[in-house]
Design a binder for these strands. Structure first.
Length: 595
RNA sequence: GGGGGUGUAGUUCAGUUUGGUUAGAACGCUUGCCUGUCACGCAAGAGGUCGCGAGUUCGAGUCUCGUCACUCCCGCCA
């Protein structure tokens, strides 16, 4: 039989009491973290959201309460009334915030018993992820996960405060909405009232926030769930949260400034770190050239260096042919790493192969000679040019990738990150931000044989590039920008197209004719022709941002109830099969049913 | 769709390379003892479908095939 709350009123939480509270009569409530029964005196560590306080049951103080306390087990939920006392002499616990005091219990209520938990509720005990997800309510009791969720709350409060001060209005947009043909796979929701038709859950509120600008709300924001039915990763969940913003009458600089201010506020509030602004800015072309990726990690050097011009006529046909066919030969000089073993080099080659690099050429620079399978193919002149370009000194090893530009950059850019990890060049406490700007407006989809928007079809092209839309679409740069933190994209946005005519022109470039455009985005085109202010916006991945702030390597650890890699919820066992009645109501026949 | 890793007690793992007696350890749990611990201590005890299924074998946790789950990555993710 468990106790009711009765007229017990909690007076303090479990991280609150100090020696200034000695002699005070208090009521604490919480979960039993540990019980230490000495036969006589019993100690219990009482835990709540805030922390832990030691409570004491002494038979000499109250035999009846002590007797009752003998039944208490871990994770029972109890309430105690008692007096704060100082700990005797050398019994202070400097490892606990409340280690100077304890509560001598006069009254004990056991609100709930608890079965033995599937795993111990302690940070030092790491259970497997599937057992943690199955008992997520227990996992969330662990300080690490609990603190992540609390930090997330701090972050969203800081965001709401900041954006409110900047004149942003929080407006909700629909979850049951229209499928957008471009982009990720949609989650579909069948309509009962309109049988055979489906809503889509939004991949982002993109179109609605642009409509809100046209409605004149001037500055909109929303901390909002978005849905994408694609395969999961450590930093990708099917439902995730964006800090979504849109502003009228602004340019890139103003949006980036406001976004920086928001990031600064979050870091101050969550980590008490003062970030320095403005953040670094790189153009897309520069990022690709120097780092190989559009999300460069600026915490270390190891920059990429193009050597196509030096090796284009080399006896090493692999390099020469790549250059002849429009490819790119780039290199990284890993300073002082000439002692890499054959095994290490093989591992790195394998690593590069993941990103479709066909090989990884290397040269070790020794005191007297170059040691390398390919050194013999270079003339002295070419060697000298490489030495100068790559700053080659004895003790260095240099890695080359030669392939089509996309592959060369991706493989070598990833190799750069991998080398930095292996060499311990990455500091855990450094936060290096950079904006990446001037993305290409579109790229060419080889499988579908058409141009595709890199960002989305509503992104404005650079004004100076508009005339290239018809002549050289791939050369058109956009007014899009990403914010990158430590090599991870945490946000992105753009100035939008606010002219119907330009929007139609871009859509036609993307192979979407007037009729199709009208079916898919007719409402947007109509709205654009009804008085659209110049506008733009940005959206941040709250989960990724929190992952970095909490030093986690998966966003699952900053989401209260995340899904597994197969997009299931182990706690609720979603998704599940619908009943026949449900399917009939929706006029849906399922073709793949196992019984 | 593809490649890698993992799966053994409630939990975390060892054992699998080279098949062979009763499958171990730590923590947790139960019981007893213990009045100053704080990851209390001491003693005793309970606890196993070796993910699941088939196969090879005199014999399978161990070998083979299949399958399921979790996880990392590639593709995919405007």
């Amino acid at each position: 039989m468990t106790d009711l709350l009765g007229d017990l009123k909690r007076t303090h939480h479990c991280r609150q009491l100090r020696d200034t509270d000695i002699d005070r009569e208090v009521v604490l409530m919480g979960w039993v973290q540990h019980r230490r029964d000495h036969g006589g005196v019993i100690f219990i560590d009482l835990r709540d959201r805030e922390g832990i306080t030691q409570i004491v049951f002494n038979p000499e103080h109250s035999a009846k309460v002590h007797e009752k306390a003998r039944d208490i087990r871990n994770e029972y939920v109890i309430g105690v009334k008692g007096r704060v006392i100082s700990r005797p002499g050398d019994m202070l616990n400097p490892n606990m915030e409340t280690g100077g005091i304890e509560v001598m219990v006069d009254e004990l209520s056991i609100f709930s018993t608890a079965v033995t938990p599937a795993f111990q509720i302690e940070d030092r005990v790491e259970a497997s992820e599937s057992i943690r997800l199955q008992y997520r309510y227990l996992d969330l009791r662990r300080p690490q996960l609990r603190n992540n969720i609390l930090a997330r709350h701090q972050a969203t409060m800081a965001i709401r405060n900041y954006l409110d001060n900047q004149g942003f209005v929080d407006i909700e947009t629909p979850f049951l909405t229209k499928s957008t043909p471009e982009g990720a796979r949609d989650y579909l929701v069948p309509s009962r009232v309109n049988q055979g038709e489906f809503y889509a859950l939004p991949q982002s509120p993109q179109l609605f926030k642009q409509l809100l600008m046209i409605s004149g709300f001037d500055r909109y924001y929303q901390i909002v769930k978005c849905f994408r039915d694609e395969d999961l990763r450590a930093d990708r969940q099917p439902e995730f949260t964006q800090i979504d913003m849109e502003l009228s009458f602004v340019d890139e600089q103003e949006i980036m400034g406001i976004a920086e201010g928001m990031i600064v506020t979050i870091f101050k509030r969550v980590l008490d770190i003062e970030l320095i602004t403005p953040f670094a800015r790189l153009t897309y072309d520069e990022a690709m050239s120097r780092f190989g990726l559009d999300r460069p990690d600026l915490r270390f050097g190891l920059e990429l260096c193009e050597v196509s011009d030096i090796v284009k006529d080399a006896g090493f046909k692999v390099f020469a042919n790549v250059v002849k066919n429009g490819g790119l030969v780039k290199a990284i000089n890993a300073k002082g790493c000439a002692d890499f073993t054959r095994k290490q080099i093989d591992e790195l080659t394998e690593f590069a192969a993941v990103y479709r690099a066909k090989g990884l050429a290397w040269i070790k620079i020794k005191e007297d000679a170059w040691q390398s399978p390919i050194a013999k193919f270079f003339t002295d002149q070419e060697k000298e040019a490489l030495r100068e370009r790559l700053d080659l000194e004895p003790g260095d090893i240099v890695f080359f990738v030669a392939d089509q530009p996309k592959i060369t950059n991706e493989a070598l850019g990833q190799l750069r990150n991998e080398l930095a990890r292996r060499l311990g060049l990455i500091s855990d406490d450094t936060y290096e931000f950079t904006w990446v700007t001037h993305f290409p407006l579109m790229d060419y989809d080889e499988t579908e044989k058409r141009y595709q928007a890199l960002h989305h079809p509503f992104t404005a092209p650079l004004e100076s590039d508009i005339d290239k839309l018809s002549t050289d679409p791939l050369a058109v740069k956009s007014r899009a920008y990403d914010l990158v933190l430590n090599g991870i994209e945490i946000g992105g946005g753009s100035i939008r197209i606010h002219s119907t005519q330009l929007q139609e022109q871009v859509l036609s470039c993307l192979g979407i004719d007037a009729q199709e455009a009208n079916e898919k985005f007719g409402f947007l085109l109509n709205a654009l022709s009804s008085g659209a202010p110049p506008h733009g916006g940005i959206a941040f991945g709250l989960d990724r941002l929190m992952m970095l702030l909490c030093k986690e390597d998966s966003i699952r650890n900053v989401i209260a109830f995340p899904k597994t890699q197969k997009a299931t919820c182990l706690l609720t066992e979603a998704p599940s099969k619908p009943s026949m009645a449900q399917l009939q109501e929706l006029a849906i026949k399922v073709s793949k049913i196992e019984e």
